[in-house]
């Protein structure tokens, strides 16, 4: 019964917060309306979200978010320097990253993180979901890049969302 009434406990406060940001107000009426929307939208769109998201280690998640933020900043400086250096300085390559993640959520989180961070864009996911093909802007050592992605991003995602 609990599952039917509140299918996504994390989504409700997030939706309420987005509503408050959208109307740019903190009046009690808007908070109430935000909470109602946050409750109603997950209930009525339940068929699109059959899986229930569970966060297992909030602290690891926080640390992961901090690492990603830091990497986004550094990545941008590095990419900006490469672009200003011109086409001669880039050394692009495709690398295949074997995946240990199994769920939709985990894989899409990893792909998005990879796209946002140092000179890499996720380009293609093999149909059997065993490999993610990543395009790197400057790849000197493909194996080091793969190891870095697996250690820095995949391991924490697996720990937080797929602890089995």
């Amino acid at each position: 019964m609990k599952l039917r009434l509140l299918p996504h406990p994390i989504l409700t406060p997030v939706l309420a917060l987005i509503w408050l940001l959208l109307v740019n107000s903190l009046s009690p009426g808007q908070i109430l309306l935000g909470l109602i929307l946050g409750w109603a939208i997950p209930v009525f769109t339940l068929r699109f979200w059959p899986e229930r998201v569970r966060v297992h280690k909030p602290l690891t998640l926080m640390r992961f978010l901090a690492v990603v933020m830091y990497d986004i900043l550094v990545a941008n400086l590095a990419v900006a320097a490469l672009i200003l250096g011109g086409p001669k300085h880039v050394k692009p390559a495709f690398v295949r990253v074997p995946l240990a993640l199994r769920t939709d959520l985990g894989i899409s989180l990893l792909a998005n993180t990879v796209s946002l961070t140092p000179g890499t864009v996720s380009a293609w996911l093999s149909p059997d979901r065993s490999h993610l093909v990543v395009h790197g802007l400057k790849v000197n050592d493909p194996d080091a890049l793969i190891a870095e992605i697996k250690r820095r991003y995949e391991a924490p995602i697996k720990e937080v969302f797929e602890p089995c």
Binding site: N76, L84, P87
Partner: peptide
């Protein structure tokens, strides 16, 4: 400046896959 560098990458780099990097990162930041 970052917005500009992102577009500069789009205009300047040699093939599609390297061009993809400029707009997705620099411009977003």
């Amino acid at each position: 400046l970052f917005t500009f560098i992102g577009s500069l990458g789009l205009a300047r780099l040699d093939d599609f896959y390297t061009r993809l990097h400029g707009p997705t990162k620099a411009t977003t930041l």
